[in-house]
Design a protein around this nucleic acid. Structure first.
Length: 894
RNA sequence: GCCGAGGUGGCGAAAUUGGCAGACGCACUAGACUUAGGAUCUAGCGCCGCGAGGCGUGCAGGUUCGAUUCCUGUCCUCGGCACCA
């Protein structure tokens, strides 16, 4: 053993010991309570970035903490190894996606190992290997049987940059989740998973996890699910004059009521304003509109086609979309008032939400108001008023809609009622009279999972001329990806060009048939991978329910909040499906969720010479303002550079290579620093300056241990000592409390600070080892053992090494199954505490007092203080406020 | 536009939830030890002031003996959503 701190040497030694002893390999059972610690699995891009280091360091710290607390901790890692980058690499460099992926995984496994993360490596899952994706397919077949997987032709989100389909969640904000480019629409036949079958549960079950999940993620999920309560109202629709008219029958949207009469259903949350409707407005894609295109004038038909085309274009949020529309000439009847209303097509009505049809009430809805104004339509009477006054004609006056609740006027028999009451009663009235009903709509849609991609799980479906769509048999799973396929990146399914793949026979009738050539969205893999870890080798089932029952649900999940409405919704949905399949017996997969902030870096671009980014500004001159923000940047030869703060990654060129950090400073220092630098949920602007401090701290602890290593405690003089020994023990126990509390509340920066304080106090302990009394020795030894044990979650190699030095044994913390130090409230209790003395709220003195001193005693001490007297003598004492154990505030006058 | 979170030293941040603002660390300054130090140690480090002292948690008010913490208004920053009827 060396007396100098060489990170590399001890890191290699302990990593080897852990691997050889299977230190983090766990099984079900035993006396210890279980704890499932999980971090979001990485995509094998080839390189770890600092965001990974932050995520996995935090998870590892918790895993260690729980182990030290006596838990049986499952801490696994795996690979989200299907997906587009592998295909991009194939297109760009002609490499085989499988080989590229496997090589990346190998290199990243090495990086994770060098960080010394405490995984049960045996349990790794690899999404791209048949042993895993077999069960993607297994689940698909189950969902097909349950009616949860179905195929339909629809407008899907299309990213023309990536040449790929996207689910609604992946196109959130109108931008592609991968590349950030605007999304267009494309009509395709796609497989969907019926997430909407679980809408209510996805919303309601948030109650079960609201204490363990960040507010902001819950909020985003509930916004995404988008519950909205209102009513359906059916308007009779007919042609006007000689116009021909057909009414298609589409369940829930349209129906026939007579030879020349149809009905169209609108959704509204404000049925109370129905007397103010001046028209009904339909989406251009609405079946009623599409069915009548030939019956409309060419002008109308052209306009509708135009609107439809515009709707498919990518959204630009910088520019507000101008309202557009046209009067179709059709007429509708307001079922409440009996009025005849024109039927319009409007670009602001979306086919995907509600019924694709709305009643337009310009007086009380801002969008309808804009629409009416643009086309010079009548803005009808006031329907909702703040007083129950008589009607006012809105036509001249208004410059905006009044969209609040109030009292109804001009509303027939409902005049005089409140909006709330009228909504209830009018909905009931519509229902009894057969032209409507109460309705709840959601924004959440089904999950489109078909991808015209090679590198994903094949969808296990076969198309037979005789039998139609036929699911593959379970015994034929996995449907394997071929070794090779021409990958062009042009958006067609590569598998459709591989006859050896798609040529098959029908599982039902044995005649020649064709396989589905689309593959599944990669988010399928990550929707259930954390169950696979519990039983990673199972070849018959995704996992054995009995084993999963022991480990799941996940106790603590850590990852970025960029997955708030993608992965986390899908995983919750999948869990509910698994529950209905009786594979699991709970509703929610993740008890607690911690969202860690991004690690970002400063990036510099030279727009003139292309897109080169400068990573470390060695060759960049940077000017900063008082807050340290960059005001300008230029190359050494004076070329101006554009600068930005961006998520760190190798591809952006601003990445700090974790391997390099480990090489220079050591894994422990890198991990410790990342944990200490900022609260875990904050964004971390990467700045390497601070890491030296982490190294210094580890070296300080190292020197302290070696300084005292030969002093054993001797006969345990556990009785309360006085003086420095007692003070040290007090600090030790206060630190134990602070560090434990911090872990429980998922804080990682403050416990490091607490450990630094403790190390500082040990360093200030002035007795030399030779002169130390038995009490001194006990105090120092306890302090050092506690410090080292509590350091384990942040710097496990150093902790293991120093622990073995302290106990003078080759084995360390793991081998001895050591425990987090025991906290003693008695030892943490101070003999004396400092009481602040204020006069009129301003600090004027400090006095020492016993923690048990009563208020009268504290008051007496306060008045006895010389400094305080200067401010109180000769003045009237109006009031004295005493806060036990904290302060005395004397209020004086004059 | 709507919703949410947040503004504390030169920087990252603490603050027992209404009770000594700035713990811990980075950077910086001075000194010690050194052939040397980018090692280590000592001291200093919110602002103004020689000092006593005064001021200070985005800004303006309010509640309170006492406010970074609660309330009202306002400004700014970041994030989410984007015609959801």
């Amino acid at each position: 053993m060396d007396e100098k701190y060489f990170a590399k040497k001890i890191e290699q030694r302990w990593q080897k010991k852990w691997a050889e002893s299977g230190a983090f390999e766990v099984e079900i059972g035993g006396d210890k309570p279980k704890f499932y610690q999980l971090e979001m699995l990485p995509y094998p891009s080839g390189n770890l970035h600092m965001g990974h280091v932050r995520n996995y360091s935090a998870g590892d710290a918790l895993a260690w903490y729980k182990r030290l607390k006596g838990f049986n901790v499952l801490h696994p890692i795996g690979w989200d190894s299907f997906g587009q980058p592998a295909e991009d690499a194939a297109v760009k460099r002609g490499v085989n996606p499988r080989e590229w992926t496997e090589a990346n995984i190998t290199s990243m496994q090495g990086q994770l190992q060098r960080l010394g993360l405490s995984y049960d490596w045996r349990r790794q899952m690899y999404a791209h290997r048949p042993e895993y994706y077999k069960f993607d397919q297994w689940f698909f077949l189950k969902m097909y049987e349950m009616g949860l997987a179905y195929k339909k032709t629809t407008q899907v989100n299309w990213c023309s940059h990536d040449q790929a389909t996207l689910s609604n969640e992946q196109a959130s904000g109108g931008m592609c989740w991968r590349c950030g480019n605007p999304v267009t629409k494309k009509e395709l036949e796609q497989w969907f998973l019926r997430t909407t079958a679980y809408t209510g549960q996805l919303l309601d079950d948030m109650k079960l996890i609201e204490d363990g999940w960040p507010q902001n993620v819950l909020k985003r999920q509930s916004d995404w699910i988008g519950r909205s309560e209102g009513a359906y109202v059916d308007f009779d629709v007919m042609a006007s004059g000689e116009q021909l008219f057909v009414c298609p029958i589409v369940d829930g949207l349209t129906s026939m009521v007579g030879k020349d009469r149809g009905r169209v259903r609108v959704f509204t949350t404000r049925i109370d304003t129905i007397y103010g409707a001046n028209s009904i407005v339909l989406a251009a894609e609405h079946p009623l509109i599409q069915a009548n295109l030939d019956n409309f004038s060419s002008e109308v038909a052209e306009k509708i086609a135009y609107i439809r085309a515009e709707n498919a274009k990518p959204a630009d949020h910088e520019v507000e979309i101008e309202k557009d529309g046209i009067d179709t000439g059709l007429k509708a009847i307001n079922p409440f008032s009996g009025e005849e209303l024109p039927v319009w097509v409007g670009n602001y009505v979306m086919m995907e939400y509600g019924t694709g049809a709305v009643m337009s009430v310009p007086g009380h809805d801002e969008r309808d108001y804009e629409f009416a104004k643009k086309f010079g339509l009548t803005i009808k009477r006031v329907i909702v008023s703040t007083e129950s006054s008589d009607s006012t004609d809105l036509q001249d006056a208004p410059d905006s809609a009044f969209s609040e609740y109030g009292v109804l006027v001009n509303s027939g028999e409902w005049s005089g009622k409140t909006s709330e009451g009228a909504k209830r009663e009018m909905t009931a009235y519509a229902a009894t009279n057969g032209f409507g009903e109460g309705a709840i709509t959601y924004r959440l849609r089904d999950w489109g999972i078909s991808r015209q991609r090679f590198w994903g799980s094949p969808i296990p479906i076969i198309y037979c001329d005789k039998c139609g769509t036929v699911p593959e048999k379970y015994e034929n799973l996995p449907v394997r990806l071929p070794e090779n396929a021409a990958i062009t990146g042009t958006g067609e399914s590569p598998l459709a060009k591989v006859p050896e793949f798609y040529e098959t026979t029908c599982p039902k009738c044995d005649s020649p048939a064709r396989r589905e050539t689309d593959t599944m969205d990669t988010f399928v893999d990550s929707s259930w991978y954390f169950f696979r870890y519990t039983d990673a080798g199972n070849s018959e089932m995704p996992f054995d329910p009995a084993i999963a029952k022991y480990w799941t649900p996940v106790d603590q999940y850590i990852g970025g909040d960029d997955h708030a409405v993608m992965h986390l919704i899908y995983a919750r949905f999948w869990t509910k499906v698994m529950r209905d399949l009786e594979l699991v017996a709970f509703d929610e997969p993740f008890r607690r969720l911690l969202t860690q902030g991004m690690v970002v870096g400063e990036t510099f671009f030279d727009d003139a010479s292309g897109k080169r980014a400068y990573a470390v500004p060695d060759d960049v001159n940077v000017e900063r303002d008082a807050k340290g923000r960059i005001t300008s940047a230029a190359t050494k030869d004076g070329k101006q550079l554009r600068h930005a703060i961006e998520r760190m990654s190798k591809s952006k060129g601003n990445g700090v290579d974790p391997d390099e950090m480990v090489e220079i400073y050591g894994a422990d220092a890198a991990r410790l620093f990342v944990m200490f630098a900022a609260p875990i949920e904050n964004e971390l602007v990467w700045n390497e300056a601070g890491i030296e401090g982490a190294v210094r701290f580890l070296q300080r602890v190292w020197r302290l241990v070696y300084k005292w290593r030969d002093v054993d405690a001797g006969p345990a003089a556990a009785s309360a000592s006085s003086g420095p020994a007692r003070a040290l023990r007090r600090k030790t126990h206060q630190t134990i409390k602070r560090v434990g509390d911090s872990f429980e509340s998922l804080q990682f920066n403050t416990p490091v600070a607490a450990l630094m304080e403790l190390a500082n106090v040990i360093g200030d302990f002035e007795i030399t080892p030779d002169a130390a009394s038995a009490e001194d020795r006990l105090a120092v030894r306890e302090a050092l053992l506690s410090l080292v044990l509590m350091l384990t979650p942040f710097a496990p190699h150093t902790a293991e090494e120093l622990y073995s030095v302290l106990i003078d044994n080759e084995d360390g913390i793991v081998a001895n199954d050591a425990r987090f130090p025991e906290y003693s409230a008695e030892l943490a209790r101070p003999d004396e505490i400092e009481i602040a003395v204020q006069v009129n709220g301003k600090l004027r003195g400090r006095v020492m007092a016993s923690p048990d001193a009563d208020n009268a005693e504290l008051e007496r001490l306060a008045f006895a203080d010389e400094k305080v007297r200067e401010y109180t003598d000769g003045k009237d004492v109006v009031k004295v406020v005493v806060v036990p154990k904290r302060l005395v505030n004397i209020v004086v006058k004059g």
